[in-house]
Design a protein around this nucleic acid. Structure first.
Lengths: 204, 204
DNA sequence: TAACAATGTCAGATATACTGAACACTTTGT
DNA sequence: ACAAAGTGTTCAGTATATCTGACATTGTTA
C-alpha cells in the first residue's frame, strides 16, 4: 500500500496549504481515488454524490458525514475500516519469492503446513501449502479463532467439518468460512490430500 | 474486543427496534459507550460535544460528520479504525463448500481466475484458482492496488515480476508481496501454469 | 486555430447535523 | 415521602454539509 500512495500523499502534502489535521480525510480520499484512476466526477457518478462534494471533502473544506463518506467509498469500493487504516509509512524492500524447499513448516504431527512469506515483518494472511496424509486429523476438539479461512484441494480428497456440517471435498473443490465457527480437517481416505489454504489474519 | 462487545451488541440488537442499516453507527457507539461505563452526558463532557448529539447519533436519527464522530470517540478514547472494525456477529448461515465446477470465473482473456466464496456477503480475501496458459500475460502495464497477495504454483512454471525484479517460480514455489508494488504475471513456458492465490482485501 | 470534452473549483440555495434548553423518567439519599 | 442528581429524549434555532448550476483551465481532435 505504501509506495505509490506515499509519494502521492507527500506530493499533495507539499503542494496543498492545508490545516494541520491529524486524520486528513481529504488527503486520504484523494490518494485512494487517484490510485484507482478515477476523476472526481467519475467517482461521484459511481457513488451517488456530486462532484463538488468530493472536491470539498478532498480540500478538507468540509467534514463529511459518515453516510456520505460511506457512499463515496462505495464507489471505489472500499470499506471505512480500510479507508481509515491506510497507513502512510514506507515499506521496506521485502522478499517476494519463497522456494518450495525453504518454507517454514509449522505443521503438527503428521500434518505438514508450510507457510509462504513467514519471514515478512507485516503479514495480513497465513498462506500455506498443507498435506494431510491418509488418516490425518486436526482432532475432535474443534478449532476456533478470529478471522476467515479459504482453501482449495489440489490432490486427493478431504473431509471438512464446519459447525455440525460435514463436507467431503473432492480434488479442485474449495471452501471459505468464518474461523469463529468450530471446524476440523480430517483425511479418512486412502490417498494423501494436499491443500492450498489461506487464513486471515496471519496469527491465529 | 469481540466477546463482550458482541453479547452487548446482540443484546441491544434484540431489544431495540431499529431500522435496517448496513453500518449501524448508533448501535456501535452505544455499545462502546456502555462498555466503558459512560453516560451520554459524561461522554459528551469528555469529548466536547453535547449530550443531545450523542443521543441522536445513537438513535441513528443523524449520520454524524467525521469530525464530530472523531470528537466523540476521543472521549473514550478510541480510533475510528477500532470503532469501525468492531464486528457485529451476524452469525448468518453461510455456505462453506464451493464445488470446482461452480466457482465464478473472473478471469480476463485466456487467463482463468476462479474465486472461492464469491457469493459470501462479507469477505476479507479473494482466494482463487488461476490458470495461465502458455504465453498468458497480465500485460506490460503493471498491476497495482492496495493489499497483499500470496500464492503457490501447483502446476508448471511462472514468471513473476515485482518492482523491477523478475522471478521464475517452479512448481511448488510460493510468493508473497505488497500489491502496491507494480507486478505482473507471465507464462513464457510451454506448459500451462496453475496457481492457487490469495489477495487481501477481497476487492481490488 | 477552433470546437469539444474532461478536469477541478466556486457560489447561492437547500438539506442536514449540531447546540442549548427544556422535558419526562429513574435512582439515590435523607 | 420528598428532594436532588442522574438517566435518555425532544425541539426550535443555528451551524454546517450537500446539491445545483455555473466557471476557468487543461488536453484532445479536426
Amino acid at each position: 500500500m505504501s509506495d505509490i500512495l506515499n509519494t502521492l500523499l507527500t506530493n499533495v502534502l507539499q503542494s496543498g496549504s492545508r490545516e494541520t489535521y491529524a486524520l486528513d480525510v481529504g488527503l486520504r480520499l484523494k490518494a485512494v481515488r487517484k490510485l484507482h484512476n478515477l476523476s472526481q466526477r467519475e467517482l461521484a457518478k459511481r457513488s451517488g454524490v456530486t462532484n463538488s462534494t468530493i472536491s470539498m471533502i478532498e480540500k478538507n473544506s468540509v467534514s463529511p458525514s459518515i453516510s456520505s463518506l460511506k457512499k463515496v467509498l462505495s464507489g471505489i469500493p472500499m470499506s471505512l475500516v480500510e479507508f481509515f487504516s491506510m497507513d502512510v509509512d514506507e515499506s521496506a524492500v521485502e522478499r517476494v519469492v519463497y522456494r518450495a524447499n525453504e518454507m517454514l513448516d509449522i505443521g503438527m504431527g503428521e500434518i505438514s503446513m508450510k507457510v509462504v512469506g513467514k519471514s515478512r515483518a507485516k503479514r495480513d494472511m497465513a498462506f500455506m501449502d498443507e498435506v494431510y496424509p491418509s488418516g490425518a486429523d486436526t482432532g475432535m476438539e474443534m478449532l476456533k479463532h478470529e478471522g476467515e479461512e479459504a482453501g482449495i484441494v489440489v490432490e486427493g480428497r478431504l473431509e471438512l467439518t464446519v459447525a455440525d456440517q460435514v463436507y467431503i471435498l473432492e480434488t479442485g473443490d474449495g471452501y471459505y468460512f468464518d474461523s469463529t465457527q468450530p471446524h476440523r480437517f480430517h483425511n479418512p481416505f486412502e490417498s494423501d490430500c494436499r491443500l492450498i489454504s489461506c487464513t486471515t489474519p496471519a496469527n491465529f
